[in-house]
């Protein structure tokens, strides 16, 4: 073992404020992986059909949304089969909603750890984001299956797909950080989460097109960062719609949300052991 450099730790009441200690985070990278492995194992350990649940959930949502919006209301999809249209939005929503509903608990359910061992707490929402990736990948596989099923050929914009997948993950992480910080600070926040999920499901263009939203509501509607991402992924896969300024708007707003979220998280992080 190398003993060349002596590690010096200074503990003070007011240590310099750092938004994110990347070096420390890297040294704990294995923990992020083992924690999400643990969550996955625990999540599916005692269920009868295990991982199949991760497939059944989005499939069931897809069928409901397709029936209501595709068959009953018959929304205009610009010529894209409604199943494909919906599954694109749903894949993003699946990942986002998983993180929103589970991040709040990520801190609370690990409070014993927080009180007894030091580690960067940001690992908790980050490992949730990694765990959620499994659901996300399954939803994306479902998307591919649906596209094959209805024999749909994606547009030439497909090269932009990775960017929007990345943006989805980034948005999910941002939401996770926000919600875990808020839940620690205000326990009541866990009752707000179901509202966010309900609102988000309808206020995002998952099963309908954002063009259907009246002009006067467009600005408010685009305040939801998911709108830009879902539109973007849909554009890159089907070619419908256009990649206008709303994408830039989304990127910038998520960037700001991310930084504010980190700041909020940092502020409660050092108090966690005392207030939990």
């Amino acid at each position: 073992m190398s003993k060349s450099k002596l590690q010096v730790t200074v503990i003070e009441a007011d240590s310099p404020f750092k938004l994110l200690d990347i070096r420390e985070l890297i040294s704990y990278r294995d923990l992020i992986i083992t924690m999400s492995w643990r969550d996955l194992r625990v999540k599916y350990a005692q269920t009868f059909i295990g991982f199949l649940w991760a497939l059944i959930n989005p499939l069931f949502s897809l069928l409901i949304l397709h029936f209501i919006f595709g068959r009953v209301i018959q929304v205009d999809t610009g010529g894209v089969p409604h199943l494909v249209f919906t599954m694109i939005g749903l894949s993003i929503w699946t990942y986002f909603s998983t993180l929103v509903s589970e991040s709040g608990n990520s801190i609370l359910s690990n409070q014993n750890m927080i009180k007894k061992i030091y580690f960067p707490k940001i690992i908790l929402p980050l490992s949730k984001a990694l765990t959620g990736l499994v659901d996300y990948i399954i939803a994306l596989i479902l998307l591919i299956v649906v596209m094959i099923y209805v024999d749909y050929t994606p547009s030439s914009h497909i090269v932009y797909v990775p960017f929007f997948l990345f943006m989805t993950i980034f948005t999910g992480i941002t939401a996770g950080i926000w919600i875990s910080a808020m839940t620690v600070r205000y326990r009541d926040f866990k009752f707000v989460v179901p509202f966010i999920l309900q609102l988000g499901l309808y206020a995002s263009p998952i099963a309908y097109s954002s063009e259907m939203v009246p002009e006067s509501y467009q600005f408010l509607y685009h305040c939801n960062p998911l709108v830009g991402i879902i539109e973007g992924l849909r554009w890159s896969l089907t070619g419908i719609g256009s990649l206008n300024n709303s994408v830039w708007y989304t990127i910038i707003s998520i960037g700001i949300f991310f930084i504010v979220g980190l700041w909020l998280f940092r502020r409660v992080e050092h108090k966690m052991a005392d207030i939990l």
Binding site: V10, I11, A13
Partner: peptide
């Protein structure tokens, strides 16, 4: 062990803790 912050004063630890 850095779990909680002091209100005042400081501590310095030399070595891996």
């Amino acid at each position: 062990s850095k779990i909680t912050k002091p209100t005042s004063g400081r501590a310095i630890l030399y070595g891996r803790v």
